[in-house]
Amino acid sequence: MNKRPIKVLLAKAGMDNQNKEIRILARGLREQGGMEVIYSGLYCSLEEIAATALREAVDLVGLFVHNGSHLDLYPRLHELLAAQNAGYIPPVFGGGLIPERHRQELKAQGSATEIFGPGTSTGSIIAWINQVLAAGEGGELL
């Protein structure tokens, strides 16, 4: 049997319209990574993002933040994803304009599994996704 195709939700939340990065990543994950990518579009609420993750049964959620509200958004998203969980919480990754110490803080508190800094290549994000899912982070979907 073929390997399960990876399904990723890429999301933007709130008043944050910097979307070039996420669109490039969406294309990269699709073209280089062979993944199924759902892009939420701009100005979503975290509730909408969580509801979409649930209904689409995605493996991972990527949230990208460029408006400085990352310290609020990631923990809240993680909370919402965990609240609707029944066995599987999709790991959250992200990026954007987030200072290194905040990246570490968010990872340490567990609200994001990985946050990539500026200049990260699409290839390394793909490699990371494959590695995380192979390691069974977040539990088994079935």
Partner: peptide
């Protein structure tokens, strides 16, 4: 559509239906 070359797909129909997400 799924790409015949890589197997990847961009699923974008949801963007236009976001108001029903919840």
């Amino acid at each position: 559509p799924t790409s015949p070359f890589t197997g990847g797909a961009l699923l974008g129909d949801r963007i236009r239906m976001l108001r029903h997400a919840e």
